[in-house]
Write a protein that binds this DNA or RNA. Structure first.
Length: 964
RNA sequence: GGAUCCUUAGCUCAGUUGGCUAGAGCGUACGAUUCACAUUCGUAAGGUCACAGGUUCAAGCCCUGUAGGAUCCACCA
């Protein structure tokens, strides 16, 4: 196959993915129990590596499309997956699809309504079946998009959140919790969306600041009941007499600051709820109302009277300092009601109409009722004022409807012990967090966690396996029983009829089992893939998901569900703004993939990104990724052409005038793993991957390279590649994806291409070219899987797939020779810089480079000439002339006429000054006795060396100046 | 109100255990050009590391405070 002159991702990506998928390379190689890692590798980097590696995909919506956040997710997770696979671990990346309970339901219900139907025409089972079909029709895009992004996940193991084993596991947990007494049915206030007719967990509620009105309503005191204690009276007295308010006794003797009031004015934003009022609360420390506590007021527009109670909830600073208490329709009031044992009067129905109110108001909507109430209050002169305020209002995160706090009987999980256990394990550092700060954030959250409402009134979800006794008079039988037969609306047990609870689980309840169900963990057959090696997900669902997975993992398995957590932040637009449809700044990852290729997208989105941070993203970074793909493509094309052109290889050796001394050492001829591979004729499907599945062997870096280094550049590139790969390993260990990509980018581009390949144009070493290119391709593969595979398949000497190649071992090289190349580089850079700084253009072609008694330069004449483009590099004859380079230990001159040197004088003077400033700073450091005493020896030595070097440099520059 | 994070070049971001003479990509300026790549090569300019104190021989990094921004949690009668 011929290399095209530029990399065209569209020509390769889908074929490559299909070939991978067909050859089972995405499957883990160790199916059950861990094998002993007893092979003796050549590289100590692999000594303590675990034989398996597992990671699950946070399941994208089964019938949705991937957005930019998914793009980031896949880039991160797949890089980890491919990296660990290359390292020889049996790697399992488990894909998933989410039924997305509420999201999908909303979409479906909208479709239903567009066809003139409503959900109330069908029972739950019918609706479930209809949504199932609806999803089945829509499904598939998401999976194709994951493939386009290169996700190397094990497709056979895809888990859908409504799969049987998921439901089964969720029921098992629920049953256990029910038996353990962790599940209870309670009537509590829930966030209820009147449009969708379902409750939400606190975490799903969206608060928005809104303009509203704060009305002040007068509640008149009931004179005749002033001294009588009612049900609210004694309760109200308690907080005041408690030890926390020692001042209270003193205050009670003091003369009242305010005259006896005949009424209390309360502040409210929701006057229509006054029918549900059961008390008026004032702050126990509020002197204005001190004497009214325990007295009663008339509830306007009704014939009821309600007590005035003391409760900290009332803020003396806010409004009038007196607040009406409506336990059935306000979360705070509900709690006040619990504290004071107050009744709950529901006055708004689930569909938003008034109930349990005087006939006049009965059946009105809340808005109509508010109008009427305000009108009537005004007529009676009880409306004392109104203020415009801004307050935050709870909205349905899907339709934006204002949520109505509603009393409902729901299933709750008592989270106290679950949270406590989770905190214990977190504090025990059993899970490592990236970023680390999130651990404490999570602990704080768990410390304040309220009981978890798991009931949802949406048909599209996992049915709650609870049945209620049909006949309440059968008193001996339990009211509720657990049963898995949720396909039946009615069951019989011990001769008693039970009716199914029509609610479904909060999706987070089932999602919290994700690591368990994906890895197929079960009590009888624990798997080496649980706990997961890492949980990678968005920082925004730390509480909703990560916290719950930890609690549930510990409850079900006794182990934390994952060893590490990596949280990514939001992908913002190029200006740091949140992406949103309304702003029109949404970037579709698939557009970028189509335009620049999957690799470019992945490289681009990983750039400039760190754990937990919301960070900007722009097309520029993708372009830069595309450029890298093209670069490595052309590098490979060039290396291939040199390999093809092998005869020249020998001709160049032992060249005259150039590099003559054989500096390299011969390494033993390598076994390059040949026997392990099937011949190519057998087709790629049967390459190493299948063999390794059969034998269970893990890949190890057992290749000894078949090269010898023969000059400075060759030793140097070996050193640089070793450093680069070691850096990538460290970066991957600590999830520094951006730095890993950066390191590779620089090594491939600035070192391999710009220096090593340039030097190989003079001195060619095909074996080394092959080995080094392979190393770089493999190291780049986790981040740019397609281009590296496309190249691998195009190169004449590689075999199998790069996706399951072996992670590079260390290259051998001579460190002293490698260091010499650094000096050659600085010579070249100095020449280039000086030529650019000299007056005039095209200087490179004008002036020769002269050297005096310098073996390094002498050995590399051709290289220096080629890299600097000077016409000639020749030995100096006679007295020094021209412009001397400022490098230490090298007698190098640019053969520049005196006149030109004079024009260069200013630049030279500037340079002397700037080096002088650096020297002053160094000297000041050495003058400080504390520095010499306390700083580490090596630093002091380093400073001394630097001072010497600068002094020499200045004297050379000065002598240059004096010539002028 | 509480918590967490952020503030470094024109823009987007790195900077790991304090050793820094602060880096990268993009952008900018200047220069190059048959022979792997113009998606190229070379050179350069560009910084009071938000601000004010403190600790230290040494602070972008640690501590305290201030200002600005982001996110999350709670609350807003």
């Amino acid at each position: 196959m011929k290399f095209a002159s530029s990399y065209e991702p569209n020509q390769y990506e889908s074929d490559i993915y299909a070939a991978w998928e067909a050859s089972s390379v995405f499957k883990p190689t160790v199916p059950t129990v861990p094998v002993d890692d007893n092979s003796d590798g050549v590289d100590d980097r692999f000594e303590h590596q675990h034989p398996t590696y597992s990671i699950v995909m946070p399941p994208p919506n089964a019938n949705g499309n991937l957005h930019i956040g998914h793009g980031l997710t896949i880039a991160l997770e797949d890089s980890l997956t491919r990296y660990h696979r290359l390292r020889g671990q049996s790697t399992w990346y488990i894909p998933g699809a989410d039924h997305a309970g509420f999201e999908t339901w909303v979409v479906y219900e909208r479709a239903l309504e567009q066809n003139g139907h409503t959900r109330f025409e069908f029972n739950r089972d019918e609706l479930y079946a209809r949504v199932w079909d609806f999803v089945a029709q829509q499904r598939g895009n998401m999976e194709l998009q994951l493939r386009a992004l290169g996700a190397s996940c094990s497709w056979d193991d895809l888990t859908f959140t409504l799969d049987e084993n998921v439901i089964d596991r969720v029921y098992t947990t629920f049953e256990k919790m029910w038996n353990d007494g962790l599940i209870y049915r309670g009537e509590k206030l829930v966030n209820f969306c009147p449009k969708h007719q379902t409750a939400f967990a606190d975490i799903e509620v969206e608060h928005q600041d809104e303009k509203g009105t704060l009305w002040e309503v007068e509640y008149k005191l009931v004179k005749e009941l002033e001294n009588a204690f009612t049900e609210g009276g004694p309760e109200a007295g308690k907080p005041r007499s408690s030890a926390e308010t020692p001042v209270a006794s003193g205050v009670s003797d003091a003369p009242p600051e305010v005259g006896i009031l005949s009424s209390v004015i309360v502040s409210t934003t929701r006057p229509e709820t006054l029918f549900g009022d059961v008390a008026v609360a004032v702050n126990p420390d509020d002197k204005r109302y001190k004497d009214l506590i325990g007295k009663h007021v008339h509830l306007p527009l009704t014939d009821r009277t309600i007590p005035i109670i003391a409760d900290e909830h009332a803020d003396p600073e806010y409004g009038t300092g007196a607040v009406k208490i409506t336990p059935a329709h306000d979360f705070d009031d509900f709690e006040v009601g619990e504290r004071h044992n107050l009744p709950r009067i529901q006055v708004i129905s689930e569909d938003g109409h008034m109930i349990n109110v005087p006939d006049k108001y009965d059946g009105l909507t809340t808005a109509e009722c508010r109008k009427q109430v305000l009108k009537d209050l005004k007529e009676q002169g009880l409306l004392k004022g109104e203020k415009k305020i801004v307050h935050s209002v709870a909205h349905c995160y899907k339709c934006g409807t204002v949520l109505e706090p509603t009393l409902k009987e729901q299933w709750f999980i008592d989270v106290a012990t679950l949270a406590k256990t989770a905190i214990k394990h977190l504090e025990n550092n059993e899970i490592k967090f990236y970023p680390a700060s999130k651990k404490q954030v999570l602990i704080n959250y768990l410390n304040n966690l309220k009981d978890w409402n798991i009931s949802r009134q949406i048909p599209w979800g996992i049915a709650i396996p609870m049945f209620r006794k049909a006949d309440p008079s059968a008193t001996d039988e339990p009211d509720w029983i657990f049963d898995r037969r949720t396909n039946l609306q009615e069951i019989e047990k011990s001769g008693v009829k039970y009716v199914r609870d029509e609610d479904t689980f909060d999706t987070w309840f089932s999602s919290s089992h994700w690591p368990i169900v994906c890895t197929d963990w079960n009590e009888e057959n624990p798997t080496p893939y649980y706990p997961l090696d890492v949980m990678e997900t968005g920082a925004d669902i730390l509480f909703a998901w990560v916290a719950r997975m930890i609690m549930m993992g510990l409850y079900v398995t006794g182990e934390v569900p994952f060893k590490e957590v990596y949280l990514h932040g939001l992908v913002l637009d190029a200006h740091g703004q949140k992406m949103s449809k309304s702003k029109g700044n949404v970037i579709n990852p698939m557009d970028l993939v189509a335009k620049y290729g999957s690799d470019a997208f992945r490289l681009g989105i990983l750039r400039g990104r760190s754990a937990g941070m919301n960070q900007a993203f722009s097309e520029n970074s993708v372009i830069s990724g595309r450029n890298l793909c093209n670069k490595i493509w052309n590098i490979s094309r060039f290396v291939q052409s040199m390999v093809d052109d092998a005869p020249k290889d020998n001709a160049l050796r032992g060249r005259s005038g150039g590099y003559a001394r054989p500096l390299g050492r011969e390494w033993p001829k390598a076994n390059r793993g040949g026997e392990e591979r099937e011949p190519r004729d057998d087709g790629r499907e049967r390459l190493r991957s299948e063999k390794s599945i059969a034998s269970g062997a893990s890949a190890r870096p057992d290749r000894t390279p078949a090269y010898a280094t023969l000059n400075q550049g060759e030793d140097w590139i070996c050193r640089e590649i070793n450093d680069c790969i070691k850096q990538v390993e460290t970066d991957m260990k600590y999830y520094r994806f951006s730095e890993a990509v950066e390191t590779l980018y620089q090594t491939i581009w600035d070192k391999y291409a710009d220096w090593f390949l340039e030097s190989q144009k003079i001195y060619k070493n095909t074996e080394l070219l092959k080995t080094t290119l392979e190393h770089l391709l493999i190291a780049l593969h986790p981040f740019a899987p397609f281009v590296t595979e496309a190249i691998w398949q195009n190169l004449s000497w590689t075999e199998g797939f790069i996706i399951n190649a072996k992670w590079p071992c260390k290259l051998k090289y001579d460190p002293i020779t490698a260091e010499q190349f650094e000096r050659l580089m600085s010579i070249v850079q100095e020449v280039r810089g000086t030529l650019q700084a000299l007056p005039g253009t095209n200087n490179a072609k004008k002036y020769d480079l002269l050297y005096d008694n310098d073996s390094l330069v002498e050995d590399n004449l051709l290289l220096i000439k080629s890299l600097t483009r000077v016409p000639a590099v020749t030995a100096l004859e006679g007295n020094p002339r021209g412009l001397r380079l400022a490098l230490a230990n090298h007698e190098l001159y640019l053969d520049v006429p005196e006149k030109v040197v004079k024009d260069y004088k200013d630049a030279l003077t500037d340079k002397i000054l700037s080096v002088g400033r650096e020297l002053d700073a160094l000297n000041a450091r050495m003058m400080n006795p504390n520095y010499v005493d306390k700083a580490p020896q090596y630093l002091v030595k380093e400073t001394e060396d630097q001072i010497k070097e600068k002094e020499q440099l200045i004297s050379r520059l000065k002598s240059q100046l004096s010539i002028i």
